[in-house]
Design a protein around this nucleic acid. Sequence first.
DNA 1: ATCTCAATTCGGAGATTCCCGAAATGTCGA
DNA 2: TCGACATTTCGGGAATCTCCGAATTGAGAT
Lengths: 137, 137
Amino acid sequence: MSNRPLAPVVDLLKTLAHPARLRILALLRDGELCVCQITEVLGIPASTASEHLTELRRAGLLAERKDGRWVYYGLLREGEHGSLLESLWAHLDGVDLIDQDHQAALATRSVPVEVTCAKGRACGPVVRSARLVRHGR
Amino acid sequence: MSNRPLAPVVDLLKTLAHPARLRILALLRDGELCVCQITEVLGIPASTASEHLTELRRAGLLAERKDGRWVYYGLLREGEHGSLLESLWAHLDGVDLIDQDHQAALATRSVPVEVTCAKGRACGPVVRSARLVRHGR
DNA sequence: ATCTCAATTCGGAGATTCCCGAAATGTCGA
DNA sequence: TCGACATTTCGGGAATCTCCGAATTGAGAT
């Protein structure tokens, strides 16, 4: 049970150490969402969301499921990261942004995917308020 | 219990997401050490070690205690990060580098500080094997 | 007062991360 | 087959992180 490298642990933590990725993880606690839905809730470009999702999947935190032209991402709960995520939820509990995302996701989940995804481009600017900002340390 | 920003959580994770800082945290589980001892065990320049220690302290993970010209750093166990650290230990358990550090620290702890600190400069190159290497992802 | 040495701060070079628009890919529906 | 659209990949500019040697600070020792 030895001979194990340190790098994987560091990589996992690096993956977690980003606001958008934490928001995505928290979002998916309530069930899978497709990229366009996540894009809508987070208020970021699809390309950026896709990159974060790829990163989270590489870290073994998410699973992807393709359905037609939509790609759904869901939390991988069984992985060995379980305990770490559990304590992470505690830290995310009561965080404004996370709660707001949760509410926005409720709305998004209540309508068919087609509605949400078409809206982003057909209509005017996105209504979503919370923008991802670079934060100093 | 709301109105809490996300940034502090991200900062904590960023602080943890570094091999040298994880090694330091693991080292200090067995009790406080001074900067020169940590420098010795990790095999890195004192300035680098000092910067990592400052970062860990800023994150609320370490406390510093000054004694003469030595500065000792110790784990802050009571903080609200407790549960996160607990699951972190599990991830560090059985990692080679961490075990090696633990052994090296035993040796370092068994002699007075003066011996360890003087050795680094008086004698030839440091004997320590494990060097901190940049790791790809 | 002066020297020594542990520790920190500083300067700056190199590597990495982050982000977004543009282009590419793949699927559905007409 | 073609157009629309969700998603991914690509390019590259900007911000951040990381590291180390040099300079600085501060506390003991002489």
